[in-house]
Amino acid sequence: MTEPLPPKRPRIPGSGLAKGLAVTLRTMTKKSVTAQYPDTQPGLPPRTRGVIGLFEENCTVCMLCARECPDWCIYIDSHKETVPAAAPGGRERSRNVLDRFAIDFALCMYCGICIEVCPFDALFWSPEFEYAETDIRDLTHERDKLREWMWTVPAPPALDPGAEEPKEVAAARKTADKLAAAQAEPLEES
């Protein structure tokens, strides 16, 4: 037999019931949290996983996104083009040209892996979410549509005060510093 815990305070019978009533009454007097969506658009944060936008100029048709996609919902067609040599006597170079870039949003599970793996920053999350269709086949959106969504991508949120510098900025600064030092050295020597 375990000793019953000593009562902290004499409990009034029905106080729990009264507390419950108070909770509901208090909630009623507060402002309700319902978002009246079609009338007022929701204020969604940047990087909301609404839809995936494509910045075509950055795409090199490396196919990483299509290969990493867990449910294979990215379709990419491309062909190679030879670019004439930049300098006379130089070698001809071949270049990938994107023919088709489509995402089937009926299959997409919004994991965001494609965006993570893209090495050239060609894919972005956009908070846009109103792209319902009446036919499931219409949910496969082609590159022009994806490009349109690109323009709805908001600027990334500002860094927190006192946060670490972004890596690319830090790297750029390092290079700039080195360059400046290299330029300064010969001056000192002379």
């Binding site: 009454l25 909630t27 009623m28």
Partner: peptide, 13 residues
Amino acid sequence: KVMAHMQGRLGPM
């Protein structure tokens, strides 16, 4: 309406 507001909703609008 009352039920909605007690649950933090708006109810039919």
